[in-house]
Measured scan of single mutants.
Amino acid sequence: MMAYMNPGPHYSVNALALSGPSVDLMHQAVPYPSAPRKQRRERTTFTRSQLEELEALFAKTQYPDVYAREEVALKINLPESRVQVWFKNRRAKCRQQRQQQKQQQQPPGGQAKARPAKRKAGTSPRPSTDVCPDPLGISDSYSPPLPGPSGSPTTAVATVSIWSPASESPLPEAQRAGLVASGPSLTSAPYAMTYAPASAFCSSPSAYGSPSSYFSGLDPYLSPMVPQLGGPALSPLSGPSVGPSLAQSPTSLSGQSYGAYSPVDSLEFKDPTGTWKFTYNPMDPLDYKDQSAWKFQIL
């Protein structure tokens, strides 16, 4: 009977010793046993002879290597770790002494450095960015050149030099007046198309007034536009458009034309069986010896 009264063996659950049927240790109110408190290391007290050895090595170098620390530790009968900690504390003490010396050398008012006064946003004049500046400075420094007289040679050079070769001289006033084509001369031969040399188009003023001019072949195509416009036809070669000034309004060009419109200028042929003959000019830059190549039959 006494065997049943004795408590059973101890069981360990999660490293906790349980005594038989008792489960009081598993209750929430019972805390787990805490780790033992780490003991504080005792402070090391250095003797005068030990301090002399350490100070002598510190005077040589503030960062001794492990071999120098072990050698000193053997002399003063201390572990190497204590020597390492002593050098660490000695360097910190040396830095603190240097900072105190710097503070003593500075004057009393030198510690508080005078800061520059901050400028207020409204006091300083700042350039306004509302208006974009002129990058080319046209509004201040540029002045347009004065327009020359209508009959000045410089204007003629600016007008005619675009179309004339570089080897030719500017046309005088008398020749510029001949550039304007007359109405009857352009409409006299509506079906004849003559190819003149390129030099005649640039230099010869008579080429624009003769039936064999460069633009005589364009007349049949330009004249039928007159009834559609409801007024006189516009002429690209009329009046002052080739003269001194090219800047004319469309209203000033509306009254200039080749001449009176005639039914002869239409595109319809009077004789459907007729042929169109292209007159060959020996001055043509295209060297075609066979003139029969310039004739064709309209079917």
Score class of each variant (00 low, 15 high):
146 L>G: 06
5 M>N: 02
285 P>G: 07
11 Y>K: 01
276 W>S: 00
133 P>C: 13
225 M>V: 05
158 A>L: 15
161 S>L: 14
232 P>N: 06
119 R>N: 03
132 C>H: 08
161 S>N: 01
207 A>D: 01
95 R>W: 15
91 R>G: 11
28 Q>L: 15
62 Q>W: 05
64 P>E: 14
99 Q>C: 04
74 L>H: 07
277 K>Q: 02
69 R>T: 15
195 Y>V: 07
137 G>M: 10
219 D>Q: 13
49 S>W: 10
266 S>K: 10
236 P>R: 11
225 M>L: 11
109 G>M: 01
77 N>S: 08
174 A>F: 13
30 V>C: 05
216 S>G: 06
133 P>F: 04
12 S>D: 00
257 S>I: 11
3 A>S: 03
65 D>H: 10
207 A>T: 10
20 G>V: 12
114 A>D: 04
77 N>V: 13
138 I>V: 08
129 T>D: 08
41 R>Q: 13
225 M>F: 11
234 L>R: 06
135 P>C: 13
138 I>N: 06
125 P>Q: 08
248 Q>A: 09
255 G>Y: 10
259 G>K: 11
17 A>S: 04
120 K>P: 01
28 Q>E: 05
37 R>M: 06
295 K>P: 00
266 S>Q: 05
210 S>R: 12
49 S>F: 09
55 E>L: 08
46 F>W: 14
292 S>N: 00
104 Q>R: 13
10 H>I: 14
181 A>Q: 08
30 V>I: 09
224 P>K: 09
276 W>Y: 05
265 D>P: 12
13 V>Q: 00
86 W>S: 14
274 G>F: 10
259 G>Y: 11
154 T>Q: 03
10 H>E: 00
249 S>L: 11
20 G>P: 05
66 V>G: 07
225 M>P: 01
148 G>C: 05
48 R>D: 14
27 H>T: 06
282 P>D: 02
50 Q>P: 11
179 L>Y: 03
172 P>R: 12
159 T>Y: 13
77 N>W: 12
21 P>I: 13
126 R>Q: 05
225 M>G: 00
3 A>N: 00
127 P>C: 06
171 L>D: 05
238 S>T: 05
209 G>F: 13
88 K>C: 13
272 P>L: 09
65 D>Y: 15
212 S>E: 02
105 Q>V: 05
231 G>T: 11
235 S>L: 14
210 S>H: 10
58 F>H: 11
183 G>N: 04
31 P>C: 08
282 P>T: 03
193 M>T: 00
146 L>S: 10
162 I>W: 01
94 C>V: 03
286 L>P: 02
165 P>M: 09
121 A>Y: 06
41 R>E: 13
280 Y>A: 00
128 S>V: 06
246 L>A: 03
18 L>Y: 07
119 R>P: 04
32 Y>V: 05
212 S>A: 03
148 G>P: 04
199 S>C: 12
232 P>I: 14
289 K>I: 04
53 E>H: 05
57 L>H: 12
11 Y>C: 00
104 Q>Y: 07
288 Y>I: 09
201 F>L: 03
12 S>R: 11
188 S>W: 09
142 Y>S: 09
143 S>V: 05
167 S>C: 04
153 P>T: 09
14 N>T: 15
114 A>K: 10
133 P>K: 07
202 C>R: 11
